[in-house]
Design a binder for these strands. Structure first.
Length: 151
DNA sequence: GCCAACGTTGGC
DNA sequence: GCCAACGTTGGC
């Protein structure tokens, strides 16, 4: 079992949206490293820290689970989608995703500033690295345990 | 809205 | 294969 952190802008898709839908295909990732994590490493049952980015209070707000194996992101084939990729084809899909299932909200937001203050406890955490922009990040067992039992 | 950081693109 | 230009992310 592995653990991950996935970012979402709450105005686009928030933890409340995930709670309401229960399960959601993680469409629209167009970064190769994030894609590779989903395509090559994520497995059903893996834990996901759900992170709100680009908002008033950025931070971890909930827990989710990987709910499917990787499959091609259908939005890459849809000319009407913002995520359409003319270089992708059904024979040679370029972008993959997994489904994410809601597990719970945290009892409070673990804000970015609080996470930074915990950096000694958390150790190496890509989320806190300078200039990090990846929307899917690996989380260690120890980080998962620390953060998921904190709130 | 600003801007630093970073990934991607494309000319050469 | 280099690297400048450009676009995007995301905190503030």
């Amino acid at each position: 079992m592995a653990y991950w952190l996935m970012k979402s802008e709450p105005e686009e898709f928030s933890i409340e949206d995930l709670a309401a839908r229960e399960r959601e295909p993680w469409t629209g990732v167009r970064n190769y490293q994030a894609r590779n994590y989903m395509r090559d490493q994520m497995q059903v049952g893996d834990g996901v820290l759900f992170y709100h980015s680009n908002c008033a209070e950025p931070g971890i707000v909930g827990i989710a689970r990987v709910a499917s194996a990787a499959y091609p992101d259908p939005t890459q084939f849809d000319p009407d989608s913002d995520y359409f990729d003319p270089k992708a084809s059904t024979e040679a899909p370029r972008w993959f995703l997994i489904d994410v299932a809601f597990e719970r909200r945290l009892t409070r937001t673990l804000g970015l500033s609080e996470l930074r203050q915990m950096s000694a406890v958390l150790g190496d955490f890509p989320l806190l690295a300078r200039g990090n922009r990846l929307s899917v990040l690996p989380v260690t067992d120890s980080q998962w345990h620390t953060l998921s039992t904190l709130a």
